[in-house]
Design a protein around this nucleic acid. Structure first.
Length: 264
DNA sequence: CACAGTGTTATCTG
DNA sequence: TCAGATAACACTGT
């Protein structure tokens, strides 16, 4: 699930349920999600008794601040942050449990364990862990978009997915933005005209605004996302059969009529 | 049983 | 040097 919109939802969970509360207990039920050499003992020592501050999101990263050390969370493909009563039995894939002073728990839940939790003892360490991230997609300016699409020629989808150019867009959001912008995902970035980049800019803003509000890429009937896994799925805009392929190393869906393949 | 999957990264190839 | 492809990570659902 976790692309920018999903991580934004986890930020809201952390803000609503965690902010202002003290951590009374930290349980690591699967140390496989601890990253950067972090051990359960060290996470426990750093967080127990700490008061949770205002969380931040950058791209697909979530930062849990305490005023002292910070915890950085990356959700990979299957991670979630959920709030539950502390006396409720943990789910099968709850890997780290933070019990709070109000009897609730924040739980890092993750099936595949592709990413996980990092501990940043100082603000400088937070910056170091996020250093290779490009500007956040949600507040991307037109100038930043142009810069992200500039430089060496690449496939458009590959450029939008590159977290060091734009942080936060994943496979679903990227396909959705390109479908709204009526641009083929394999379009070359060096052959985009001003009208095309303008459509990308507007589509990006609209898709993110609605997705962030929903806390996910909405599987609305009028969007591409709700149709990408349908066998024999058709474009919700023009009715043409959707195309499926592999572009930028990812499963990709587009409408061959609305998003014609670039020449050459 | 085979394979794909909402993410990232190391490594190989052309 | 670099864009692109591939495997790997670990696990589930089709």
């Amino acid at each position: 699930m976790p692309e920018l919109a999903d991580v934004e939802e986890y930020r809201r969970v952390l803000d609503r349920c965690g902010r202002g509360h003290r951590v009374t207990r930290v349980e690591v039920t699967d140390a496989g999600v601890l990253r950067g050499g972090l051990r359960a003992r060290r996470l426990r020592d750093a967080l127990t008794g700490a008061r949770i501050g205002r969380p931040e999101r950058h791209g697909k990263w979530l930062v849990l601040h305490t005023g002292g050390p910070a915890v950085l969370l990356h959700f990979g493909m299957t991670g979630q942050l959920v709030s539950a009563p502390a006396d409720e039995r943990p789910a099968a894939h709850d890997r780290v449990l933070f019990t709070l002073d109000d009897g609730r728990q924040l739980r890092f839940r993750d099936q595949r364990k592709l990413k996980g939790l990092w501990l940043a003892p100082t603000p400088g360490e937070v910056d170091r862990l996020l250093a290779d991230q490009g500007p956040d997609a949600l507040s991307l300016t037109r100038e930043q978009l142009d810069a992200a699409l500039g430089g060496r020629p690449r496939q458009l989808k590959a450029a939008l997915l590159d977290q060091s150019r734009i942080a936060g867009l994943g496979n679903l959001l990227t396909d959705e933005v390109l479908w709204h912008a009526r641009l083929h995902p394999a379009h070359r970035t060096d052959r985009l005209d001003r009208a095309a980049t303008g459509r990308i800019s507007r589509s990006l803003k609209q898709v993110l605004r609605i997705s962030v509000r929903a806390g996910r890429v909405p599987p609305r009937g009028s969007w591409l996302t709700g149709h990408r896994d349908e066998p024999g799925g058709t474009c919700p805009r023009c009715g043409h059969a959707l195309a499926h392929g592999r572009i930028a190393g990812r499963g990709t869906v587009w409408c061959p009529r609305d998003q014609p393949a670039p020449a050459g």
